[in-house]
Design a protein around this nucleic acid. Sequence first.
DNA 1: ACGTAACAGTTGAGAATGTAACTATCAAGA
DNA 2: TCTTGATAGTTACATTCTCAACTGTTACGT
Lengths: 151, 151
Amino acid sequence: MSLILEQFLPYRFNRMAEILSKNASQAYRTEYGLTRPEWRAFALLGQYGTMTATEISYYSTMHKTKVSRAVYALEKRRWLIRGQDEKDRRIEKITLTLPGRKAYDRLVPLMLKAEEDILSRLGKSNADALRQGLDALEELFVEPLEDKRSG
Amino acid sequence: MSLILEQFLPYRFNRMAEILSKNASQAYRTEYGLTRPEWRAFALLGQYGTMTATEISYYSTMHKTKVSRAVYALEKRRWLIRGQDEKDRRIEKITLTLPGRKAYDRLVPLMLKAEEDILSRLGKSNADALRQGLDALEELFVEPLEDKRSG
DNA sequence: ACGTAACAGTTGAGAATGTAACTATCAAGA
DNA sequence: TCTTGATAGTTACATTCTCAACTGTTACGT
């Protein structure tokens, strides 16, 4: 019973996550000087329109203090605003501003292009296999965002 | 052309890497109080017997300063020793000591068990798909360890 | 209504990290 | 041999992160 790291799931995921992140960060770092936590919060907001910090934290797997500071940084850029929740005054409803939205719209194609390059080099059948595996793994560990948001 | 994070590779990998690492770290944290960088360096050494810090750095995707500190911490525990290279005195040949080896041998089954739990819940066909996808991805980005070591 | 517990988000202090500069060594060419 | 440039690994400093404590608010049992 021996441990072969090349086949060990956490090892493989960590290494690949690092590589893919480094690859992807090129765009948002050079274009806008965003940090990784900032980008992650930003991308979630870009897609979902309005979120709470807790939601961002959960779906980015980032600690809530990290989110807090990322949101603050994006707020200083005037890329987002915080609104109140009618029913619960503890909650902040965070939304991108127009400039934030514009930056997001310019960034997205660059990010997608980088991913597309990788997927095309991977080939369709490998890409499909990867997706199937990831889907199954997430099924075990990740609660879908919609459940949280509607509930 | 819009960005759907749930389908975006770097996002998925980062999140899953985080989840799997947290899951796996249980064992080495509670048993031995190892940090993540320490565990990674340790696991590589456990598997390969002797490595240089540069090799550890490359195959763990950790920055060389991180490796330097992890190695130092493991050295303080007396879990590894540094030896000289005959031909190149810049190089350190790092090897586990007997106590290091023993700790490694006790840790490995715990780590494998945690992974096995996940894989069995995943099911064979999903696990196979995942492996195929990871293999293909690594083919693009990761040079096999043996190439480096023999070369 | 009151007290207690739970939750959303922020802040501060100490730990961990990355960048750049450094030492020591090696390799290659004039 | 001497110089220049590259490499292995460490150290210093500035940034970033995590943990715990905190504020303000809501939920709930009595």
